[in-house]
């Protein structure tokens, strides 16, 4: 039971972190049709900026300043790089963001080196919030949860209740019409891109010190975020939330329970005493294939329901 509760809690936490990345990515994709391959790189920049700022100033200023920096950088990338590339079509944009991801990774390595930097959880939050059945739960994890849920609520109300939110939602489907009603759609695009990157930055700030801040972190998380937005349905914020939680929880459950996959293989007629490559198969556990879980989900989703859980159009 306690294993269940803890892996549920950790799964939700990881899922909310994924959501911070996926929400920006899915908005940017459905609005501009740009699949931003560099999105997770902004997550990484958030973590590194937070590390750099927290060295002299501490965690709290970093929590505010790092996402803002990342957001401004994102907006600048849209305005001065992506927009000029836009008229050459989506393939050019895709290649641009793909290249940008590598450039950011190289720059990060040049500045901060190839080894992880010691970006740590602030000591004031690194205390036990509660212990249950012999397992500790730190205040920082609760804090991460609070921040990410807070951002989800703010995003939800921002998009459904404010004028700018309405303009964004209308631009998702009919940018020309929104422009001919007198709204500056390119500016809306730029700010959406910036805010999307800033959200990824927030995830970097609060996640970097738990997951580890190193140059490979973007490449590690990036593909999973793509899985999230495809499974949730492109352009759907609710879908991104559900898919993030689903993947977070499934992943954690697979690791904590570590079921043997032998029963499945035995159904296929593989003996437990099999030899060679089959021996490796029967000894597999869910923990070992946990990293595969998101991609299995992706493949299943594309076969069964290509538009995703809450999507309105096919991928």
């Amino acid at each position: 039971m306690e294993v269940f509760v803890f892996s549920l809690f950790n799964g939700v936490l990881y899922g909310m972190l994924l959501f911070l990345l996926a929400s920006g990515l899915t908005l940017i994709f459905s609005m501009m049709g740009v699949l931003n391959f560099a999105h997770a790189s902004f997550f990484m920049l958030g973590a590194y900026f937070a590390y750099q700022i927290s060295q002299p100033l501490g965690f709290w200023p970093a929590l505010i300043a790092a996402p803002i920096l990342v957001g401004v950088l994102g907006a600048a990338v849209e305005r001065y790089a992506l927009r000029p590339v836009h008229r050459f079509g989506h393939v050019a944009e895709l290649l641009f963001t793909f290249g940008l991801a590598f450039v950011i990774e190289e720059v990060v390595q040049m500045i901060w080196g190839k080894v992880p930097v010691p970006y740590d959880v602030p000591p004031s939050l690194n205390v036990t919030a509660f212990a249950w059945q012999g397992l500790d739960y730190s205040v920082y994890r609760l804090f991460m949860l609070l921040i990410s849920v807070g951002i989800f609520v703010a995003l939800f109300f921002g998009l459904t209740r404010t004028r700018i939110g309405l303009i964004i939602r209308a631009s998702l489907t009919h940018p020309h019409m929104v422009a001919s009603l007198g709204h500056d759609v390119p500016k809306v695009f730029m700010w959406t891109f910036g805010v999307g990157c800033a959200l990824a930055g927030v995830a970097g700030v609060i996640g970097g010190n738990v997951l580890g801040t190193e140059p490979g972190m973007a490449i590690q998380l990036g593909p999973i975020v793509f899985v999230v937005i495809v499974v949730g349905g492109l352009g759907s914020l609710g879908g991104a939330l559900i898919a993030s939680l689903l993947i977070g929880v499934l992943n954690n459950m697979a690791i904590s329970y570590d079921f043997s996959l032998y029963p499945i293989f035995s159904l296929l007629g593989v003996e437990r005493e099999a030899e060679g490559i089959l021996a490796d198969l029967v000894s597999l556990t869910t923990g070992a294939i946990a990293p595969l879980v998101p991609y299995l989900l992706l493949v299943l989703m594309l076969i069964l329901r290509p538009r995703g859980l809450f999507g309105t159009r096919d991928v």
């Binding site: 004028r163 309405l166 939602r169 489907t173 929104v178 009603l181």
Partner: peptide, 12 residues
């Protein structure tokens, strides 16, 4: 704007 309500359409 099909995903918005009628009133929201007018507001835009």
């Amino acid at each position: 704007f099909p995903t918005l309500t009628l009133r929201q359409n007018l507001i835009l």
